[in-house]
Amino acid sequence: MDIKDYISSGVLESFVLGIASEQERREIECLSSIYPEIQQSLDELSEVMESFAYTLATEPPAHLKTKILEAIVDEAQEPLLQPLNEVKPTPTQQEVQPAAMTVSKPNRPWLAAASLAALVALTVVFFINQNNQQQELIALQEKVNTSEQFNTELNDLNSWLAHSRTKKIQLKGTENQPEAEVAVFWNDLTQDVAFKVGNLPALASDKDYQLWAIVDGKPTDMGVMDYKNALAEIVQGGKVAGAQAFAITIEPKGGSKNPTLTAMVVVGNV
């Protein structure tokens, strides 16, 4: 909008004379607070009207002052409607015009505080996020490492299982646990032993399954088993040479030196 055109349009004169429309008044209220040139023109025009009023000045009768001052003693001043959301009552008559209009301003300290709080919150979220992301990255790296290691192990296991000298020994359930079934793998060259649980009943927490290799008719401890592992597992440090059979017994937690034969669940000959 061209401010000069607006000023010379005559709308400011209408405003000062009190004959501007409601819409024009609102417009001028708004524009005068934005453009100093408009406010200045309004001030100049108002000054003209003030000067004009002074030329008409007549001393009012003395009793009028007394009457008015008596009238205001009991009249409380109305507070200015301050809150932004409060609805201004519509003026009943063609009330007070230009200068009397007030525009309530937004609560800026509150805004500033809110903005600051939002900024702080965003920063915190950012750092937490970054921290989280870093932790996630570490976890992911760990997973990858584990996975790579696992993959290597699995490849190794597969190679070992596929080795011509690796034998699969199917251990069958005894009378104690007819349904039990475990596969044992043994390589007489590398002497490594592995097993894969087919079906073993769950144990009480104070019990363990223990694997035995029978060599020359005597049980050799191959260690307790993680029977819940669904995958084939190489028995760590459980090399055995000249195994004739393999058996699994239920032993107290941590295993026994000698197998409890009455608690044997599966057995299989090589």
Partner: peptide, 22 residues
């Protein structure tokens, strides 16, 4: 003028203009 005095905004014009309009 007394009752509504709090609605006078000096940024919008002089007190005289405000009173004159009322």
């Amino acid at each position: 003028i007394w009752k509504k005095f709090h609605s006078y905004d000096s940024a919008k014009g002089t007190i005289f203009t405000w009173m004159l309009n009322i």
